[in-house]
Amino acid sequence: MKKVLALVLVLSFVFAGCAFGADKPGKGITIGVVYKQSGNPYFQAGVAGFQKAADELGFTFMHDGPDDGSSDGQIRIVENYIAQGVDVLCISANDPASLVDVCNEAREAGIKVVTWDAPVDPEGRDLDVEPASAKVIALTQLDSMVKSVGGEGQIAILSAMATAPNQNLWISFMTEALKSGDPKYAKIDFVGVVYGDDEYTKSFNETQALLEQYPNLKGIIVPTTVGAPAVSKCIMDAKRNVKVTGLTLASDMKEFINKGIADETFLWNPTELGYAASFAAVAFVKGEISGKDGETFNAGELGTLTIEKAADGGTISFLNKLNVFNNDTVDAWINIL
């Protein structure tokens, strides 16, 4: 009897196992992931999120980004994915406008378009997944800078490409806040924006020029992961007391945070972003969501996410999580970001 019971038990486990294996919700789904540029560690972390979700959901995915970070390079990659017949495209766009046509072609071919990290214009996408609203991201950095410089002094911004949509949006929120007459910004003198083009040397040279131009400069906000280490290195070499904050990878900034050049920097976890985007993608293929305002989807470890109306007229879903890297937390993040 015992033996029979054991056998039944074992068999039921086996069946359950089979059933479970077959029931992985993403089985048979192919996702094409397109990011802004190859060789950028930020997107490696993003791809790790897709990998994690793929292990849980059982879908397969391909990923690629253009060599030169251009939008026509992304169009080429999207064309290739359409030719291969993927089910969903997950795109982090270099420019919201350029990819609209090719995304629409994909949608005509029955491919869903989910954007993550940087959106395509609403007429070319089904859903956008973002870490937090642009205003929160912008003001977090600004307030941290104000705290670092003690509430008064000259500050500047070093951005990425002058055409970068995310950065431009954040900068507009920052300048708006500075002009709003809020007393906590009253003694802050904002001297201007320079562009490092997401190139290390250009960011370095622009920082040198800033430091020479404004001998009383107190802080630089760097809302781009490529610029931040260049700015910090330049300040360290110049031995100036200028504070840095911005959006950075932990591994890039550990040294500078430990040396006190940056008090704290921020980043959402791109791994979580990729993870959430892939759950949204699978939900789309399964027909669980259609990208409308008010729908919800299950995002695994991240709980349930709600789809809202976005400022640009499309729909968006926020993770609302921003990680802080400071002297205490940076070591924990260094191998992740």
Partner: peptide, 15 residues
């Protein structure tokens, strides 16, 4: 190129 990039125009193209 303009046709290919959804009729959008910017300055950092064709590098």
């Amino acid at each position: 190129f303009v046709g290919n990039s959804s009729s959008s125009v910017k300055a950092d193209i064709m590098d």
